[in-house]
């Protein structure tokens, strides 16, 4: 089976005044369709940059990024936006919900622009927010907000679900529940999910674990038998 996502010698350099930072320094990895991928690494290792490049929020300076056979690394402007719009679902650490819209409306916000969206209410029910649909973000707990964020990402029916520290702002229990939701989504819907975390403890739940250090892939392992998040303690 061919790689669904393929990164080839991706490099990204930031110039901070006179200092040159090689945030991504020749990253290479493949991901197959339907995999649950965890990218781990310490802060500043470049994992977020990799995710941003993969999610079309940033561009790389060198290398190729193939998603479902399309090289997006040279995309710019409108094409890149279209890529984000149609192929990517993003989940952030701080949810980034529109405060002025209810949970349902936040999901609908994403659907307005999609080619083939899912039903907003249905998705919200799936993430367990059937009762809180008409609440504003401020009226929801962190976990609930993150669920809304996930629902928003999923409702777009993306090819890739990218999650940047989705549990970073959540307490342990809630964090676990969110990871469970992501894992279930991957399993049940065949969604390719990539989760960034600095918490390597959750690595066992992934199909594929990519370790990034100093802008390079230091290690990539495949879990033949990924465990459920429920069984993981940290």
């Amino acid at each position: 089976m061919n790689a669904f996502v393929e990164l080839k010698d991706v490099r990204k350099t930031y110039h901070m005044g006179e200092v040159v930072i090689h945030a991504v320094d020749g990253v290479e990895f493949d991901i197959k369709r339907g995999e649950f991928v965890v990218i781990v690494g310490p802060s500043g290792a470049g994992k977020t940059t990799v995710l941003n490049i993969l999610g079309g929020m940033d561009t790389c300076d060198e290398g190729k990024v193939l998603v479902d056979g399309t090289d997006i690394s040279r995309f710019k402007g409108k094409k890149l936006t279209a890529y984000r719009r149609d192929d990517i679902g993003f989940v952030f650490q701080f949810y980034n919900l529109v405060q002025n819209l209810t949970a349902l409306e936040n999901v609908e916000l994403a659907l307005q622009i999609c080619k083939d969206p899912l039903d907003a209410k249905l998705v919200l029910e799936e993430v367990g927010l059937a009762e809180r649909m008409s609440n504003f973000p401020a009226q929801l707990s962190g976990g609930e907000q993150q669920r809304v964020a996930i629902a928003r990402a999923l409702a777009k029916n993306p090819k890739l679900l990218l999650c940047d520290e989705p549990t970073g702002a959540l307490d342990y229990g809630t964090g676990k529940a969110i990871l469970k939701l992501l894992q279930d989504t991957c399993r049940e819907k065949g969604m390719t999910v990539i989760v960034i975390t600095h918490n390597s403890a959750i690595a066992p739940m992934a199909d594929r674990v990519i370790k990034i250090k100093n802008g390079k892939v230091s290690n990539m392992t495949m879990n033949e038998k990924p465990v459920s998040v429920d069984t993981i303690e940290w």
Partner: peptide
Amino acid sequence: QRELATLKVLGFYDGE
């Protein structure tokens, strides 16, 4: 800014 950035991430074109 966050809200607008979110919209952008969600794939809103600049015009939108």
